[in-house]
C-alpha cells in the first residue's frame, strides 16, 4: 500500500514537492473537474423532476420529497421532519399549508392535526431517478424519429464516405495517370472551402435537385471528405505495389484488386476514418438545420436545438435528450479514443 502511494505521488527529482509538481496536480485535478464536471452535472440533472430542476440551490443527486398515503386523504401526502413546540422532532405528513403555518398529521395516527410553522419543518427526501424524462420524449414527442434520423444519416454517410474515399484514395495512390496531381490538388483545396462559405449556393443546388427536406440532402454533400481521402491515400502508399502486380498475374480484375486486396489491407485506416466520420456526422448541426425544415426529418442535434430554443423550455426533457445525444460519442470516447488521438496527433486533421 505504501509503495502504491509512493508510486502515485512520485514526482520530479528528489523527495520534496517541487512547486511545479503542485502546479501540475492542481492543473490536472482542476482539468478533470472542469472537463468532465459539466457533462456529469448535466447527466445528474437529467434525472430530476421539473420540481427538482426548479430548486435553488440545486442538489447534485435527484431528490424528491417522500410521500405517503394516509388514511382519510385522497392524495399521497409529502413527509416532513417537523420540529414541534416541545423541541422534539417527528415525521409528519403535510395536509395543507396556510400562510406560514403547515397543518400536519401523523401518518400512523391521522386523527389529530398538528400545526407547525413552515420554517420548522424539513422535507424527508429520497433519491429517485425521473426516468420518465427519458421515456416521455420518445413516447410523446418525435425524439425516436430524430434518433432514427440521426442514426440513418450517420451510418449511411459513413458507409458512403468509406467506399467513395477509399476508391479515390486507391486511384490516387496506385495508378499513374495524367491529372493525378491536379486531382490531388483539388482535393486538398477543398479543405479550404468550409461549409459556411458555400452555404447559400449549396442550399440552392440541394433544392434544385430535389433533396431539400430529405436526409439524402444532409448526407451527400458531406461524403467526399478530403480528410478521408488524405488519410487513406497515405496509408495505401505503404502497401507494396508488388502485391497488386501479383494480383494482376493472378487474373484479378482491378475491381477485385480494390475489393479483395486493398480494402482488407487498409482496414486499420478505414477504421480510423469510420470513427471520425461517425463523430462528424452525428455532431453535424448547421447543414441539417438548413436542409431539414420538417419536424419529422430533424436529426437529434436539430431537434434538440429547436426544442431548446422554444419560449417555454422543457428542461427536464432537453437534458435527458442531451444525454441520449451524448451517449454514442461517449462510447466512442471510452472505447476508441486512442484511435482518434493518434489519428489527430499524426495528421493534424480534425
Amino acid at each position: 500500500m505504501s509503495t502504491a502511494i509512493a508510486f502515485l505521488t512520485r514526482r520530479k527529482g528528489g523527495k520534496f514537492w517541487h512547486w511545479t509538481d503542485i502546479v501540475t496536480w492542481v492543473w490536472l485535478i482542476g482539468g478533470l473537474i472542469v472537463m468532465f464536471g459539466p457533462a456529469v452535472w448535466l447527466t445528474f440533472s437529467s434525472f430530476k423532476t421539473p420540481a427538482g430542476l426548479a430548486e435553488f440551490p440545486p442538489s447534485l443527486l435527484p431528490y424528491v420529497t417522500q410521500q405517503v398515503r394516509v388514511e382519510g386523504y385522497e392524495k399521497p401526502l409529502p413527509l416532513f421532519n417537523a420540529k414541534l413546540a416541545d423541541g422534539s422532532t417527528r415525521v409528519l405528513a403535510e395536509v395543507r399549508r396556510i400562510g406560514i403555518v403547515s397543518q400536519m398529521v401523523d401518518p400512523k395516527a391521522p386523527g389529530e392535526i398538528i400545526k407547525v410553522r413552515i420554517g420548522d419543518r424539513e422535507p424527508v427526501r429520497e433519491i429517485s431517478f425521473a426516468t420518465e424524462n427519458y421515456t416521455q420524449p420518445f413516447m410523446q414527442f418525435d425524439f425516436f424519429r430524430y434518433l432514427w434520423n440521426s442514426v440513418f444519416v450517420t451510418v449511411t454517410a459513413t458507409l458512403i464516405t468509406l467506399i467513395v474515399n477509399s476508391m479515390a484514395a486507391f486511384a490516387l495512390s496506385k495508378y499513374e495517370f495524367k491529372g493525378r496531381n491536379a486531382a490531388m490538388l483539388v482535393i486538398l483545396a477543398t479543405l479550404m472551402v468550409p461549409l459556411s462559405v458555400i452555404l447559400v449556393p449549396l442550399y440552392s443546388i440541394i433544392s434544385s435537385v430535389g433533396l431539400f427536406n430529405s436526409l439524402w440532402g444532409v448526407i451527400l454533400p458531406t461524403v467526399a471528405t478530403p480528410t478521408g481521402v488524405f488519410i487513406l491515400r497515405q496509408y495505401m502508399l505503404t502497401i507494396p505495389d508488388e502485391l497488386i502486380d501479383a494480383a494482376r498475374m493472378d487474373k484479378a480484375s482491378e475491381w477485385q484488386i480494390y475489393w479483395r486486396i486493398i480494402v482488407p489491407l487498409t482496414a486499420p485506416a478505414l477504421a480510423v476514418l469510420a470513427i471520425f466520420s461517425v463523430v462528424w456526422r452525428w455532431n453535424d448541426f448547421l447543414w441539417p438545420l438548413i436542409v431539414l425544415s420538417r419536424r419529422e426529418l430533424y436529426t437529434l442535434q436539430v431537434g434538440l436545438s429547436i426544442y431548446s430554443g422554444e419560449l417555454n423550455v422543457q428542461w427536464h426533457y432537453i437534458l435527458a435528450m442531451t444525454v441520449v445525444t451524448m451517449i454514442p460519442v461517449v462510447l466512442v470516447f471510452i472505447f476508441l479514443q486512442r484511435f482518434i488521438t493518434t489519428g489527430i496527433a499524426g495528421s493534424g486533421l480534425k
Partner: peptide, 20 residues
Amino acid sequence: AVFFFPVLLSPVVVGLIWRW
C-alpha cells in the same frame, strides 16, 4: 483523454450543457 473529452461532444450538446 480528460482534456480531449469535450472535443468529441457535439456543438449542440456543448451549448446546452453550458446554457444549463
